[in-house]
Amino acid sequence: MSYDKHILWACTAALLTGWVLTYDNGLCSGAVTRHSCNWTCMHLTLQWPGSFCIGINNKTICKIPQTVQNWTIHGLWPVRTGHCCDCWPIYHSHLQEIEPELTQLWPSLIKGKHFFYFWRDEWIKHGTCAGCEESMGSPLLYFQVAVKLRKLFDIDNILESSGIKTSCDVSYKHDDIRGVLTPLLGQNYDLQCVTDSEGREAWIQLKVHLFRNQTLGCPKQEQEQKFDRLSWFNSTGHPCPKNTTIFYVPINYENPHEPCN
């Protein structure tokens, strides 16, 4: 076994016991702080590429690849406060086994940002916390779980089969969308919107509430203590309003920040 593996195992063990170490030139340099692995809930956040660029202030950096045609993963986020770990590295080779699926289901929509750098950021910010759970205890396992959940919640087919289709002319009531999603998700989700230049509310994200064992739900107390504070912290947009209709806009590859103009 190589020295590097010893170091990685030490870092991983430190994380699982709650000690956060710094990673410096390939070495865990020491325990610098402590965080809790006692989070209960996580959010699988799916984003609609057709609306994504509406919420980006810098319109020049947004790009939707032609291969992206369905709902994509924004992230799988444990609901917790504080920082997790800087010493649990991720390398491109860790994800090569599932890279074709990640490219389709978890692409970067920012021009010039290699997909791996997006995945690396998500691992550092969120995956290292998720790694407290054995089923997500490595970069590969974490991303495999996200892909599995995305396939389980097949939003594209559910919407299509229920007659909710992308359009710049037809909008939907909040309750109409929830009526389609609730049989699959119960009440364990939130709809998130952005407002376009014409004042239309465009559906951008679906945030699914999960326990750490990847089943639907989240204790009410946990939601009250953490969800209200962090609900939109890592997201673009705002809760979709209930007093106006919602547009499910099409993907516009040529003009992604103004898909209906």
Score class of each variant (00 low, 15 high):
21 L>F: 12
249 V>Q: 03
260 C>S: 06
70 N>E: 12
76 L>T: 02
129 C>E: 09
207 K>W: 01
102 L>Q: 06
54 I>E: 01
62 C>H: 03
260 C>G: 06
151 K>F: 06
182 T>F: 09
154 D>H: 13
157 N>K: 14
249 V>T: 11
147 V>I: 15
227 F>T: 13
3 Y>S: 13
19 W>C: 13
47 Q>I: 06
100 P>R: 09
149 L>C: 01
237 G>V: 08
5 K>A: 12
191 L>F: 03
100 P>D: 08
78 P>Y: 03
83 H>P: 06
239 P>H: 13
20 V>P: 06
136 M>N: 04
191 L>V: 07
215 T>A: 03
117 Y>F: 13
48 W>L: 00
32 V>T: 15
78 P>D: 05
193 C>S: 02
187 Q>G: 08
254 E>W: 05
134 E>I: 14
241 P>L: 11
238 H>T: 11
128 T>A: 06
72 T>D: 04
33 T>R: 15
196 D>P: 01
179 G>S: 10
28 C>T: 00
212 R>G: 04
8 L>T: 03
112 G>S: 05
50 G>P: 00
168 C>G: 05
112 G>C: 03
98 I>V: 13
90 I>C: 01
220 K>W: 12
192 Q>L: 08
137 G>Q: 08
133 E>H: 12
177 I>S: 04
20 V>A: 15
152 L>Y: 06
49 P>F: 02
233 F>V: 09
88 W>V: 11
7 I>L: 12
96 Q>A: 13
131 G>W: 06
5 K>C: 12
222 E>R: 11
60 T>A: 11
4 D>T: 13
13 A>I: 03
102 L>R: 06
164 I>G: 00
140 L>Y: 08
226 K>C: 09
156 D>L: 04
78 P>W: 02
154 D>S: 13
16 L>H: 14
107 P>L: 02
51 S>W: 04
208 V>M: 09
249 V>Y: 03
241 P>K: 08
112 G>H: 07
98 I>S: 05
60 T>V: 02
207 K>N: 10
200 R>E: 03
181 L>S: 09
87 C>P: 02
86 D>L: 13
48 W>G: 00
167 S>L: 04
232 W>D: 11
76 L>S: 06
189 Y>T: 00
34 R>K: 14
153 F>R: 05
137 G>P: 05
84 C>V: 10
33 T>E: 14
58 N>G: 00
190 D>Y: 14
177 I>M: 08
47 Q>P: 00
100 P>G: 06
28 C>I: 03
229 R>Q: 15
176 D>Y: 07
66 Q>Y: 10
